[in-house]
Each structure stands twice: as C-alpha cells, then as structure tokens.
Design a protein around this nucleic acid. Sequence first.
DNA 1: ATTCGTGCAAAACGTTTGCAATAAT
DNA 2: ATTATTGCAAACGTTTTGCACGAAT
Lengths: 169, 169
Amino acid sequence: MKMQINCTLGLRVSPYLREKDAMTRIDHRTKKLTTALRSAGVRITRQRAALLTILAEADDHPEAVELQRRAEEAVPGISLSTVYRTLTELEAQGVILRHQFEGTPARFEHTETQHHDHMIDVETGEVIEFANDRIEQLQAEIAEAMGYDIVHHRLELYVRKKGAANPDE
Amino acid sequence: MKMQINCTLGLRVSPYLREKDAMTRIDHRTKKLTTALRSAGVRITRQRAALLTILAEADDHPEAVELQRRAEEAVPGISLSTVYRTLTELEAQGVILRHQFEGTPARFEHTETQHHDHMIDVETGEVIEFANDRIEQLQAEIAEAMGYDIVHHRLELYVRKKGAANPDE
DNA sequence: ATTCGTGCAAAACGTTTGCAATAAT
DNA sequence: ATTATTGCAAACGTTTTGCACGAAT
C-alpha cells in the first residue's frame, strides 16, 4: 500500500518560473490585495505596503523584528509597534497567518498557499511545510464524532534530521 | 468502514472506582514518585509535595497561577516563582507536560496517562483529550519520508460545539 | 476636514533570575 | 554541615497600549 504524502518544502513560487516572472506575479497579487484591503476600510500606508510586499516575497517564516529589519530599507524608522499592529490587522483580514512555535516569538506567513502544517527542525530552527489530506480528514472525523466543529487547528512536528549529532544538549 | 477513535474526555480516574479508592491510588503513585524524585537528587519540600499531589489529583489542565491558588491551602504563601521552578523541574524529570495553547498561559498535566492530543473549546476554554493511532502513525511516516526523526509533536484542534451560538464575536 | 495610522515611551503579560534567608538532606 | 530550595523583588522578552503628531482618504 502506497503512502500518500503531499509535501511542500518552503517553496512558495513554482521553481520553473523565472525570477522576474515570480516578482511580477507577487506585484500583481500585492496590488490586488491592497485594493481589496482599501475597500475593506484599511488605509494603505507606506509601512503597510512595505510589509505586504515583504510578506509576499518571503519564502521563510519571519518574526516581527525580522520584518521590521526588512522593512527598514523601504521605510526608514518604521517602528516595531507599527509592525505588530499591521500584522494583527493583516491577520484579522485573513491575509497572513500567525504561528506560535515553541520557544520563539510569533512567526508570520501570507495566506496565498494552500493549507499546510509545519515541521520545525529543533537543531536549526528551520521551518518545513508539509500537507497530508488523510490527517486533515481524520481530524475532521474526530471533531465530528465528538460533536464539535473545527475552527482551526495546528499540527507541529518538532524534528531532527536523521543521523544528526547531539541527540541531547 | 468504521472509523477508529480512541477518546479520553478529561477523565483521569476510571469512573467505576469509588472516590476513596481513587484517592488511595493517587496517594500511592505520588508516594512512589517522590521516592523516585528523591533518588534523582530532587529534594521533596512541602511546596513540591503539595504541587505533586495537586497535579496528580487534577482532572483539568491548570495554569501556574491556578496551581499556586490550589497549593495555597497546603502551603500558605507559596510563591509563584516556586511554582514555576517546580513545574520546570517536574517537566525536566518527565513527570508533567507543559502545553502552550493559543492565547493562554502555559497549562500543565501530569504524565500518567498515555499519549493524547487536545481539543480546545474556543468558546469555553475547556480542554478535551483525544487519541488517534492512525494520525500518530501518519505523522511518523511523513517525518520518516522526509528524513527526520520526530522529537515531539503537537496537535491541537480549536473547536466549537456543534450548533453553538456566536459563530463570531 | 476628517479620520485613521504612526512613533515614541510606557505598560502589560507570563515567565525567569539574583539574592540572602531557610529548610531538606 | 552542607547544599538545594524558598520568597521577594527585580529583570526578562514579547507584545500591546495611550498619546500627541502626521498622513491617507
């Protein structure tokens, strides 16, 4: 019996797209997003535009300070409060997801990819994405059987590369 | 095809045991535990004895302040730092587990039951335990296929009772 | 012109730590 | 007697908030 695993390894943009096409695609999506946000009553300031672009381009899961650092070029002096406020707003608008992995500040990713869960390499902190439909289905069945609807869920595998040194310490 | 779900609903003590027997059982386990801890070089103070007992008796997932509150009777004036230090120590000794659910302080439970995951009722904050071997197995297969060993994992379903009011707000 | 968003500083929050006093071994 | 543990207060790291100024609509 063959095991079915859909896995995405942190690649956000299809590899066969050339860099320039990828950028165009991100720009396009970001432009559409800002329009949508504006008509939801959210003012698009330089700070927010910068953060939106950075989040669209990010192929990792940056935390707030890192986002501030990356935004600094486009918006010198951008404050951490603004970063946090913007992230909260974008999360509320469904544009990004906030992940609270163990032992780190919250990390963020935009919501353009389909649903996936995360493996966190406890040695390196690297975040690897994966998806498995069967697990999703089982979760739904469990909740259903117990009389609940799932609002959202969170599955995190804290892992170590096979044969990695320091099993402890 | 019948779905297989093992589920434990926060009941820590078998319901057919009378209250007194349950207490005896907890006392017995706690006594054994303190002995084990002592020979691991951990001094059993009044504070720690109290917390061990409270954790053994708890059929919920209390947080640190709540544990302090419950310990207050046995050890008046017990400090929150002591509670936290004890919890850290007991976690290191494998006696308890620390859960960081969304939007709440860490919550603790002792490690006497077999492994399970958690559903959190987003309306009430109630924590419901469940176990599903198939999901565990799938997780292991995914990690394996990607070349990782699982150190630990975390699966949390944030749920709402079917037909509950206030789907928002 | 009217909001809404910003930066700053300060507070909030849960948790950890340095220390001198105290209790367990 | 020795050493670990305690309570207190102060610090910590992350995140939120009050406020007066500035910018987007």
